[in-house]
Design a binder for these strands. Sequence first.
DNA 1: TAGGATCCAGCTTTGGATCCTT
DNA 2: AAGGATCCAAAGCTGGATCCTA
Lengths: 213, 213
Amino acid sequence: MSPVVLPPRHEGELLERARALRGTEVPAAGLHTKGKVGELVERALGATGGSAAVWDFPELQIELKTVPVDARSGAPRESTFVCAVSLADADRAEWATSWVRAKLSRVLWVPIEIDEVRRRAVGEARLWSPTREQEAVLAGDFEEILGRVGMGDVEGVTARLGRWMQLRPKAAHGRVRTVVRGAEGERVETVPRGFYLRASFTGAILRDPAAVP
Amino acid sequence: MSPVVLPPRHEGELLERARALRGTEVPAAGLHTKGKVGELVERALGATGGSAAVWDFPELQIELKTVPVDARSGAPRESTFVCAVSLADADRAEWATSWVRAKLSRVLWVPIEIDEVRRRAVGEARLWSPTREQEAVLAGDFEEILGRVGMGDVEGVTARLGRWMQLRPKAAHGRVRTVVRGAEGERVETVPRGFYLRASFTGAILRDPAAVP
DNA sequence: TAGGATCCAGCTTTGGATCCTT
DNA sequence: AAGGATCCAAAGCTGGATCCTA
C-alpha cells in the first residue's frame, strides 16, 4: 500500500474526505475487478492498515468497508466480508478479544451505488459503531459458530448459522485447505473460512444505525 | 355437503377423529384437484358448515384448515386462505366483529404431508387459538389492510402488506370484478379478494402454537 | 358465487466458489 | 497467504392468477 494521500488525523477529516468522494464514478465490477473498488477507496481516504494491521486506519481504530448497494433502494447486493478466522483456535476464541469484534467496533461504511446500467458511484459514507443490542447479537453469532467449530463440528457449520454474521469459505481457490480438529481430535482438512455480515444486516444499519432487525 | 359422518359432539371427539385419520393417504394434488383434499377431510370429520356458516363445525365454533406441508421439514408449502372480504364495507369493518377473527378464534389445523414423490398423507392435527400477542398482530394487519381499502386506496394494497395476514385476489377467473369506492368516492372495479395467512405464520404456529415470529 | 384451496413465473436470497493485488 | 471483495446456480419466497364443486 503506497498512499497517495496522508492518513486522516481525526474522524472529522476522514468523514470529510469520504463525503467529498460522494458521486465519484468508480470502475464497473466484473470477474476481473473483485476488490478493486475497495482498494481505490482505501487509497483515496489515506488508509495505511496493510496486511498486518487490525484496522484500515490504525490511529483512529476505524475499519473501512465498501458495500455494493442498489442505487434506487439502497439495499446491499452482497454480504460483507469481515475477516478470516483461524479455525484451529476456535476453542480458545472469545468475542471480547476477537479480531472480528475489534474490526466491527467502529466502521466507516461507504456504499457503492450500482444503477441499472451497472455504473458504480460512491454513495454517502457513514461512521458506525454497534449499539449494545447489536453487539449482543453479533457476540451470540460468534459464540454459536465458533462453539460448534470448537466442538469439532466444523462441517456442521453452514452459512445458515448466525442471525447477522455467518461463516463462509474464504480462499482464492476451492482447493486450498486448512487443518482443524474433529470431534474425536482427529485431523480434518477443510477450506479456510471467514466471517461475513449478511446483506440484511448491513442494509438495516445503513438505513438506521441502531436498527434491531 | 352431505356428511357421511355425524357431526362431532365435542372437541375431544373431533380431535379423536382427526387423529384417527393420521397417515391416511389422500389423492395427489394437481391442476384439477384444487380444494379436493380439504373437502374430503371435512366430510371425514363430519363438518356441516356449508356456505352460509361461519365455522365448519358450527356447534363447536371451530374452523377446519388443511395445510400442505413438506413431509420432511413440516414447513407449509402454501399460504392459507381464510375468507373472502367485502371490499365495499371496508370502512365499516372492525376486527372485533369480523368474520376473519371469528374463523381464526379456534382452528383445527390438519397438515397434509407431501413427500418427495408427491404422495400426500394426513399429518398430526392440532387445535389452536391465537394467543393475545398473536391476535394483536393479526388485528394490526386487519386494520392496516382494510384501513387502506377504506380510504379508497384498494389498488395500493398489495400482498406485501401485513405481517402474518395478507390480502390477495380470490376469484375463479382473473376477469371477475367487484366494485369499491376510490379516494374521491368514485367507482373502482377491481378483483374480489380474500385474507390469507402467510406460510411463515402457519409454519410457526404448527411448530409452536404460541409462536411470536 | 362462495367455499375449498393450489399453481407457478419471476424475483430474491442463500451460500459455496472464485477472482485480483501485494 | 492475507486482505480486498464479487460471482452466480440453485433454492426459497412472493403474490397475482387460477382451478374444482355445489
